[in-house]
Amino acid sequence: MVIFGYLLMCMIFGTTFLAIKVGIDAGAPPFFSAGIRFLLAGLILFLWMVWKGRARVSLLFRKEMMLTGMGLTFGTFSTLYWAEQYVASGIAAVLSATGPIMILLLQTSILRQKTSASAMLGCFIGFAGVLLLLLPSVSVEVSLLWVLGCIMILIGEVCYSSGALYSKHVMPRFQDTSPIALNAVQMMYGGAMLLILSLFTERVHIESLLTLNAIVSLLYLIVIGSMMGHSIFYWLVAKTNPVFPSTWLYISPLIALGLGVLLYNEVVSWIAGIGVVTIIIGIVLVNIDALRQVIGKPESAWGSMQSKQ
Rank of each mutant, 00 (worst) to 15 (best):
T201R: 13
Y264S: 12
I3L: 15
A256N: 06
F200T: 14
I222E: 02
S118W: 14
P298L: 01
A93Y: 01
T15A: 11
I222P: 01
K168P: 00
S118F: 11
R203C: 00
I224C: 01
W82H: 11
Y220F: 09
G14V: 09
S162H: 05
Y6V: 09
Y81T: 11
F13P: 03
Y166A: 01
Q175L: 06
G163V: 05
F13W: 12
Q306C: 02
L144N: 08
I288R: 15
S78V: 13
C150G: 13
G275S: 08
F13D: 04
G191A: 02
V147W: 11
F46K: 05
V50S: 01
E157W: 01
F77I: 07
Y250S: 10
S246N: 14
Y81K: 04
C123G: 09
V286Q: 10
R203A: 03
W82K: 13
S109N: 09
I280Q: 05
A97L: 01
A192F: 11
L18V: 06
L254T: 14
V94P: 06
R203N: 06
V277P: 04
V243N: 05
H205K: 14
H169T: 13
C159Y: 00
I101W: 02
I44P: 03
L72W: 02
R203K: 13
A301R: 11
L95Y: 04
M227H: 03
E207R: 15
L148D: 00
N287I: 11
K114I: 07
T76P: 02
L197S: 02
L263V: 13
A128M: 11
L67Q: 10
W302I: 15
V268F: 13
L47I: 09
G275C: 10
A34K: 04
G69V: 01
L135R: 14
Q186H: 15
T247M: 12
T177G: 01
M305K: 06
G69R: 06
G258S: 09
A214C: 04
L263P: 10
A290T: 15
S307N: 09
M49A: 07
T98Y: 03
V284H: 06
A92K: 07
M228G: 02
L154S: 04
D25C: 07
T108F: 14
V2L: 13
D25H: 12
A83G: 04
V158Q: 08
S208T: 15
G282Y: 05
G71H: 04
V286M: 15
G303K: 14
T73C: 05
L194A: 08
L47A: 12
G260Y: 04
T73A: 06
V57C: 03
G149A: 08
L111G: 06
P179I: 05
E84A: 10
K168C: 05
S167V: 07
V284L: 06
G275M: 05
S252A: 15
D289A: 13
F4Q: 13
M1D: 07
I295F: 14
L285A: 02
Y234T: 15
S89W: 02
S307M: 06
L259A: 02
I196Y: 06
I232V: 10
